[in-house]
Amino acid sequence: MSVQDSIKGFGVTFKQFLKSPETIDYPDQKTPVWPRFRGRHRLWLHDNGLEKCVGCSLCAAACPADCIRVVAEENTAENRVSAGERYAKIYEINMLRCIFCGYCEVACPFDAITLEAEYELSEPSRIAEIYDKDMLLAPSPKPVPIRTEPSGRQ
């Protein structure tokens, strides 16, 4: 190994000193994801506060991992939950089973369910991995930045 080679090598190293680092300071900082990233599910409300989901269970039918459980009930005048005749009394997704294929989103006739950017889905127990309707209706507790600029990597 000649001196020349060493200079060449250190040259590469010095060049990298001038660039901003590729590593991300996780968990203080999160990797931004692409807009079409499929992460944690979210159930949506209409503008008037009613749930978009009518408990039709089509998502459960489409789900290849069989991770969605929907138990429907009828809306009454006193207790109107959704815009249709029925609503989902129970809406559960087993996140351990989910393969994030997004078929539920495709199947939904009311755009009630979407797959969002959040990917931090570890929980302290298996039972806690079954997300219920209240969890799914709430805005993402661990928001993730969405990537907009093109990637430098291949």
Binding site: S57, A61, A72, E74
Partner: peptide, 8 residues
């Protein structure tokens, strides 16, 4: 009424 869908 609203108890189940055929695939459930």
């Amino acid at each position: 009424r609203f108890v189940a869908r055929p695939w459930d």
